[in-house]
Protein backbone atom coordinates (compact mmCIF):
# COMPACT_ATOMS: atom_id res chain seq x y z
CA UNK A 1 0.00 0.00 0.00
CA UNK A 2 1.75 3.20 -1.03
CA UNK A 3 1.11 6.71 0.14
CA UNK A 4 -0.65 9.26 -1.99
CA UNK A 5 -1.75 12.81 -1.52
CA UNK A 6 -3.79 14.19 -4.35
CA UNK A 7 -6.33 16.84 -5.08
CA UNK A 8 -9.55 15.62 -6.71
CA UNK A 9 -11.75 18.62 -7.32
CA UNK A 10 -13.01 19.79 -3.94
CA UNK A 11 -11.42 16.88 -2.10
CA UNK A 12 -7.89 16.24 -0.89
CA UNK A 13 -7.32 12.49 -0.84
CA UNK A 14 -4.75 11.54 1.79
CA UNK A 15 -3.63 7.93 1.62
CA UNK A 16 -1.25 6.80 4.34
CA UNK A 17 0.94 3.97 3.13
CA UNK A 18 2.38 1.05 5.02
CA UNK A 19 6.05 1.66 4.22
CA UNK A 20 6.36 3.87 7.28
CA UNK A 21 5.44 1.00 9.59
CA UNK A 22 9.06 0.57 10.62
CA UNK A 23 10.80 1.69 13.75
CA UNK A 24 8.94 3.41 16.51
CA UNK A 25 8.00 6.96 17.26
CA UNK A 26 10.37 8.66 19.62
CA UNK A 27 8.28 9.38 22.60
CA UNK A 28 9.22 12.08 24.93
CA UNK A 29 8.18 12.40 28.51
CA UNK A 30 4.50 11.61 28.74
CA UNK A 31 3.40 15.17 29.10
CA UNK A 32 4.84 15.97 25.69
CA UNK A 33 2.81 13.30 23.95
CA UNK A 34 -0.58 14.72 24.64
CA UNK A 35 -2.02 17.97 23.52
CA UNK A 36 -1.73 19.96 26.64
CA UNK A 37 -3.93 22.99 26.54
CA UNK A 38 -2.18 26.25 27.07
CA UNK A 39 -3.76 28.66 29.43
CA UNK A 40 -6.14 30.35 29.42
CA UNK A 41 -7.94 27.86 27.23
CA UNK A 42 -9.17 24.78 29.04
CA UNK A 43 -10.65 22.54 26.44
CA UNK A 44 -9.20 22.97 23.02
CA UNK A 45 -6.40 21.15 21.28
CA UNK A 46 -3.61 23.25 20.01
CA UNK A 47 -2.65 22.82 16.39
CA UNK A 48 0.57 21.13 15.48
CA UNK A 49 3.51 23.25 14.67
CA UNK A 50 5.07 21.65 11.63
CA UNK A 51 8.55 22.11 12.95
CA UNK A 52 10.52 19.77 15.17
CA UNK A 53 10.66 22.02 18.13
CA UNK A 54 11.77 20.04 21.13
CA UNK A 55 15.23 18.86 20.32
CA UNK A 56 18.27 21.00 20.73
CA UNK A 57 16.17 23.96 21.63
CA UNK A 58 18.15 26.18 23.91
CA UNK A 59 16.79 26.05 27.39
CA UNK A 60 17.30 29.62 28.53
CA UNK A 61 15.31 29.54 31.71
CA UNK A 62 13.51 26.52 32.94
CA UNK A 63 9.82 27.03 32.66
CA UNK A 64 7.84 25.91 35.63
CA UNK A 65 4.49 26.39 33.99
CA UNK A 66 2.58 23.45 32.52
CA UNK A 67 4.11 22.33 29.24
CA UNK A 68 2.55 23.26 25.96
CA UNK A 69 2.19 20.84 23.11
CA UNK A 70 5.06 22.61 21.38
CA UNK A 71 7.33 23.15 24.32
CA UNK A 72 10.44 23.79 22.31
CA UNK A 73 11.91 27.04 21.23
CA UNK A 74 10.01 29.20 23.58
CA UNK A 75 11.11 30.83 26.71
CA UNK A 76 7.75 31.80 28.10
CA UNK A 77 9.47 33.55 30.93
Amino acid sequence: MSARIERRGRTLGVMVGSALLVGAAACGPDELRVNVPAEPVETINVPPDPRPVEEEAPAPDEDERPPRVNPGPTDDE
Binding site: G13, A25, V34, P48
Partner: peptide, 26 residues
Protein backbone atom coordinates in the same frame (compact mmCIF):
# COMPACT_ATOMS: atom_id res chain seq x y z
CA UNK B 1 11.47 13.35 11.64
CA UNK B 2 11.13 12.34 15.28
CA UNK B 3 10.42 15.93 16.29
CA UNK B 4 7.92 16.59 13.52
CA UNK B 5 6.06 13.39 14.28
CA UNK B 6 5.75 14.34 17.95
CA UNK B 7 4.64 17.91 17.37
CA UNK B 8 2.40 17.27 14.38
CA UNK B 9 0.62 14.02 15.12
CA UNK B 10 -0.21 14.35 18.79
CA UNK B 11 -1.55 11.00 19.93
CA UNK B 12 -2.18 9.66 16.42
CA UNK B 13 0.37 7.12 15.18
CA UNK B 14 1.14 5.80 11.72
CA UNK B 15 -0.21 2.39 12.87
CA UNK B 16 -3.61 4.06 13.35
CA UNK B 17 -3.71 5.31 9.77
CA UNK B 18 -1.65 2.98 7.55
CA UNK B 19 -3.62 1.58 4.65
CA UNK B 20 -6.44 4.09 5.06
CA UNK B 21 -7.44 6.98 2.88
CA UNK B 22 -8.78 10.09 4.51
CA UNK B 23 -10.82 12.40 2.32
CA UNK B 24 -10.65 16.03 3.33
CA UNK B 25 -13.55 17.63 1.55
CA UNK B 26 -14.99 21.08 1.14
Amino acid sequence: LAGFERTTCGKVRVEDLAGRELEITA
